[in-house]
Design a protein around this nucleic acid. Structure first.
Lengths: 188, 188
DNA sequence: GTCTATACCTGGATAGAC
DNA sequence: GTCTATCCAGGTATAGAC
């Protein structure tokens, strides 16, 4: 793997696991197996790495959403894909929270200039979910429903991280799926 | 105000607004109006300050819960007090998130020894809410309902912080109150 | 109890040899 | 493209005068 990609991948993981601020160049250098001085051939600054990491996550997220869309299936099934992330990633979520939520929170506290770009990762999901709810016939409140579902998954991620409770995650996912089914059936 | 209390109050606020790690002794010293060297007469270390801040928050939270309990009223009204925090503190929440949720997330990433004590702040709410749901006749799933409500409020706090959307907070609070009313009426 | 001065370390970042 | 050596700012923490 090219060094630049290798740095990016290590930074992506470390920023998630330890947070942006508390991840040092030394940490990344040790992971990648290069010297600290070599960074600046590939990136201007630590913020420059963060920007590239956010871009990488944006790309991957968009690809995932496109994939869910391309698979065919009903809007309900697509939204279920979103809900299912909590199950698929639950081990990581219990250990480190949601990568988007925790990064946004951290950058908000740091008053960091890249906060808006981190938040736009949320917007990707928000807009995609809203489109699915429109397809379910909820044109008027599609965005409200999208935000509602986003909020519930964020809350589950935060408490899963705090309490490390697998059963709680499963229970909440079940409830979200029930809620979604009621929406799809026009009963809510 | 005694200097120790003054330091504590400033640290409490700064840890909330800027995060624990990125708050420096210089920040606190400037706020309080003392020199950096003077800290160590009152606290052993920065972690020692954090421990005292968590203890302070625990005390205040417990007092608030006791107050809600002492006011009389139905369990439903008490739980409504909890939900109402999102409205009462919405300006701060939109700016800095939930003080408990963001601290827990940060300490989890730092792998900090005081994480468990921060998480116990959640437990205070969790146990109190569960007791109210028991009083509502939901003995069997009281804790599940408590965690559900806690998760929803955490999710709202995270997204309110990301999107700075007052109307979203209000909409979610309304939905939580409706959900609660259905529970109280035995319809859920 | 509060101050100044300072030690010591680690952070990000730079210069220049190879 | 990668390294070593180094700089400088800022962090926590300590010593000791007042």
């Amino acid at each position: 793997m090219p060094t630049r990609e290798h740095i990016l991948q290590a930074a992506d993981q470390l920023f998630y696991e330890r947070g942006f601020e508390s991840t040092s160049f030394t940490n990344i250098a040790d992971t990648v197996g290069i010297s600290r001085g070599n960074f600046y051939h590939h990136f201007k600054s630590k913020d420059d790495i963060l920007e590239a990491v956010i871009a990488l996550r944006t790309e991957r997220t968009q690809a995932m959403l496109d994939h869910w869309e391309a698979q065919g299936g009903t809007p309900e099934e697509r939204i279920r894909c979103f809900i299912h992330i909590l199950i698929a990633n639950r081990t990581k979520i219990m250990a480190h929270g949601c990568p988007i939520g925790t990064l946004s929170s951290e950058l908000a506290k740091l008053d960091h200039s890249l906060l808006a770009q981190a938040t736009s990762l949320f917007t990707l999901f928000r807009a995609w979910l809203a489109r699915q709810f429109v397809a379910l016939g909820r044109k008027k409140d599609a965005d409200t429903l999208a935000m509602h579902l986003l909020a519930r998954s964020q809350g589950v991620a935060t408490l899963a991280n705090a309490f490390h409770d697998k059963a709680f995650v499963q229970s909440e996912v079940d409830q979200m799926n029930q809620w979604l089914a009621a929406i799809a059936a026009g009963k809510q």
